[in-house]
Computed example of a mutant assay.
Amino acid sequence: MSVVIPVSADWLTLREDADAGARSRALALRAGRMLRPPVIVHDLGSGTGSMVRWCAPLLPGPQTWVLHDWNDALLDHAAKASARDRHGAPITVRTRVGELGHLRGRDLGGASLVTASALLDVLSADEVAAIVAACLEAGASALFSLSVTGRVTLDPVDPGDGVFERAFDDHQRRTLDDRRLLGPDAVAVMADLFRSAGWSVRLADSPWRLDARDRALISEWLDGWLGAAVEERPALREWAAEYARTRAAQIARDGLRVVVHHVDLLAWPP
């Protein structure tokens, strides 16, 4: 299996504040109460390290974070980020370059907690199963945040909203390099696997709520959302161009609000 997720540092930086505001603090704090020092956190698909910066201050120390990503340039960026635990002490950061589809329990050696953000929906069922199996083998709780649910709410409403949402969701479930992606179904698949193993699972909504303060993020998100929809259904191209012009005018007038629905998952052993 091979998981390579093409993302840019600019996009990850643009979305970091929205991500931080959306993630479930309640689940992170619950995870923190189950940890015993020293704490070792393995973060999957770390990108620029936004999960470290958000989560470390909510957990006890001393903390060591092991950041996993296929992109060594992003990992170099993430390794330079400073973060402190909830007691104010600095954390230790290590990096590990590799494809997440090859993850095994031995790769999570010593883990107290396994985390990821905006990752599950770009994985296949086999890849999610491999991550769950690795967590089970390591005996480490798992906190996976910001998985898309497939639902988007825009205000004002437009007749195209549901059409592009359905096309985007179909794109999320596409077959890519012989991998059938789970898209919005990923969290349910992971939750069922953990529950089948006798683990406890708790879910929490974690929506982006974007308004006039988030014009740049809305514009970038909308471009990607429509682009994926058109890639899935090329017949929507002309409609998408008209829709994009309408929404761009609303963004310019500070007149567009967007809710992108996500869900967070926490799983822990008996």
Rank of each mutant, 00 (worst) to 15 (best):
V258A: 06
W239E: 14
S200P: 05
A129Q: 14
L154P: 10
A138I: 08
V4F: 13
D214M: 04
G227K: 03
G61E: 01
D19L: 04
L100W: 02
T153D: 14
V157N: 08
A235L: 07
P184K: 00
E231F: 04
E238T: 13
A56S: 00
L103M: 08
A191E: 15
D185I: 01
R96F: 07
C55F: 06
G227H: 04
L119Y: 14
S112W: 02
I5H: 10
A116L: 02
V39A: 01
Q63T: 00
Q63R: 00
I40Q: 03
A9I: 09
I91S: 00
W239M: 14
S117T: 15
R180E: 09
A28E: 07
K80I: 11
V260K: 10
D126L: 02
P38M: 00
L217K: 06
R94M: 03
L222K: 01
Y243V: 05
I5T: 13
R104S: 15
D69T: 08
G98Q: 04
S117I: 12
D107A: 08
L123Y: 13
T175N: 11
A228G: 12
A79F: 10
P270R: 08
E232Q: 15
E99P: 12
R180T: 12
H77F: 15
V7F: 12
L203W: 09
W11Y: 15
L193V: 15
R237V: 12
V66W: 00
L29Q: 08
H42V: 07
L146C: 09
A252R: 11
S206I: 04
A204Y: 04
L265W: 06
L143C: 10
V163K: 08
A18I: 06
P90C: 00
D121F: 05
V122I: 15
G198D: 10
P6W: 02
W11H: 10
V201G: 14
L143R: 10
S147L: 08
R106K: 12
I251P: 13
M1Q: 09
T246W: 10
G105Q: 03
D43E: 14
V41A: 00
D76T: 14
A244I: 06
D223P: 01
R25P: 12
V148K: 02
F194H: 11
A235Q: 06
D126K: 04
L29I: 10
H261N: 10
G160I: 01
G224S: 08
R180V: 10
L217E: 04
E220K: 03
R15H: 03
L226A: 07
E16F: 01
G150I: 03
V157C: 07
R233M: 06
V260G: 09
A249L: 08
D155M: 11
P57L: 01
P38L: 00
I5G: 05
D161A: 12
D178M: 05
S8F: 10
G49W: 00
A204M: 11
E220A: 02
E238H: 14
L154E: 15
D121G: 06
L154I: 15
D161W: 07
R104D: 13
V201H: 13
M51I: 09
S50C: 11
V97Q: 11
W199I: 07
H171L: 04
P38C: 02
G183W: 04
W199L: 07
A197L: 11
D185W: 02
G255L: 01
P37Q: 01
A28S: 05
P184E: 03
P57C: 06
G88Q: 03
L113Q: 05
V93P: 05
V157S: 15
T64G: 00
A9N: 11
